[in-house]
Design a protein around this nucleic acid. Structure first.
Lengths: 186, 186
DNA sequence: CAACTACCTGAACGATTGTTCCATAAGTTT
DNA sequence: AAACTTATGGAACAATCGTTCAGGTAGTTG
C-alpha cells in the first residue's frame, strides 16, 4: 500500500466535502477552484490536481451527496411512521435547509448532464426496490409529493413544521384518513 | 409621452427575455452581462444600464417567468381534466423541457433570496385561491406532487409521456380510482 | 432651428476566473 | 543511501468577468 495514495484519497474527499459546504453557503455559482481550496484549507491548485475540471468536481460532489442521501432517507421512507417522515421533512427544510437547497441545486445539474441522471435518481430507484409498493401509482405519487413538499418548503416564508406536515404525510401513505396503508406492504 | 422611454421599456423587456433564453440554454451560471447582451442583440453595457446588477437582472427574469407561469398553469390546474393536466406535464418535461429546467433554477434562486419567495410561490397561492379546495390537505398533496413529477421528469432517462402520467394525475385528483372528485368543488 | 436633456454606448479598468508548468518535497524501492 | 516515482504547491498566463465613465446620439422643447 502506498501511503501517498492513501493521503491523496483523504484530501480528495476533503475537497469534495468542502465543495458541498461552499454550495450550502453560496450555491453552485459560488464554487470556484479558489473558494473550494480556501474552504478545504488546501493550496489553490489542489482541486485542479485532483479533478480534471470544475465540472468533474461538481459531479463528484453530486455522486457523494446522492450516496449519503440514500443512506439517510431510505430507512425512513421505507419503514418510518408518518410522524417520523414528517419530522424528517421538517428538519430538511429547517435545520438542514442549506443542505437540502444544495441537494436540489445539484439535482438540477443532473438535468443538464445526462450522465448524472442515474446518480440523481438513485434514491428514487432504490426506494421502489426496497419498498416494493403494492400500488405503484400511489407510491410514485408519494415520492413525487416528497420532492414537491421539500422544494415548496424551501420557498415558504416560514418552513412548515412537523405538526403541519404530519397530516399531509399521513394522507399520502394511507390514502384517506380512514383507510388502511396502501403504499407499503411487506 | 416620451418616445425615448417607450423604446427603453421595450429594450428592457427584450433583455429579460434574452436572459431567460440564456438560462434555458446554459443555466443560470451561463448568465453574464455579455452573454445576455449578445443574445438580445444589444450593446455589452445595456444590461448594466437597465439593471443595477446581474442579480437584479435575474430577479426581474424570475418575476417575469413567475407571471407567465401563472397565466399558463392556473386554468389547467383549476379546470383541466386529468388527461389535460397529464398532457401539460408531459409537455413541460419534453418539448418545454428547457423552459421547465430554467423555471426550477430560478425557483431555487428564491430559496436564497427571501424577497423573491413570494414571487416564486405565487402560482401556488393563486392556485389555492382559484380552486378553493374542499380538502386542503389533499390539494396541497396535489400541488406538491406536480412539482415532484416535473422535477423527477427532468432527471428521467426518458421523459414520462402523457399516457404514463394520466393515471398518476387521476389518482391525485380522484383519490382512488373509484371515488369521486375531492380536490375541487365549486 | 437652436438649445437642451435624457438615453445610450464603446472603450477601458481592476478583479477574478480556470488552468498550466515546473521546481520541490515526500514517500517507496532497490 | 541512492535512485526513482509520485504527490504537491507557488507563480504566472490568458481569458473573462462586473462595472465605471466620459462622450455621443437621438428625441423634446422653446
Amino acid at each position: 500500500m502506498d501511503g501517498r495514495k492513501a493521503r491523496g484519497e483523504k484530501k480528495r474527499r476533503a475537497i469534495v466535502e468542502a465543495t458541498l459546504r461552499v454550495i450550502e453557503r453560496d450555491g453552485v455559482s459560488g464554487v470556484t477552484h479558489r473558494s473550494v481550496a480556501r474552504e478545504a484549507g488546501v493550496p489553490t491548485t489542489a482541486p485542479t490536481y485532483y479533478f480534471a475540471s470544475l465540472d468533474d468536481l461538481l459531479i463528484a460532489t453530486l455522486l457523494w451527496v446522492a450516496e449519503e442521501l440514500c443512506d439517510d432517507m431510505l430507512d425512513i421512507i421505507a419503514r418510518g411512521t408518518p410522524r417520523q417522515i414528517a419530522r424528517e421533512l421538517s428538519r430538511a427544510v429547517d435545520e438542514n435547509r442549506a443542505r437540502t437547497l444544495a441537494e436540489y441545486e445539484l439535482y438540477l445539474l443532473a438535468g443538464r448532464r445526462p450522465e448524472l441522471k442515474a446518480a440523481a435518481r438513485r434514491w428514487l430507484d432504490l426506494a421502489v426496490e426496497v419498498v416494493r409498493p403494492a400500488d405503484p401509482v400511489a407510491f410514485r405519487v408519494f415520492l413525487a409529493a416528497i420532492d414537491g413538499l421539500l422544494i415548496q418548503g424551501l420557498i415558504a416564508d416560514v418552513a412548515p413544521n412537523e405538526d403541519e406536515l404530519e397530516p399531509i404525510v399521513s394522507f399520502l401513505i394511507r390514502g384517506r384518513d380512514d383507510s388502511t396503508p396502501r403504499t407499503s406492504e411487506q
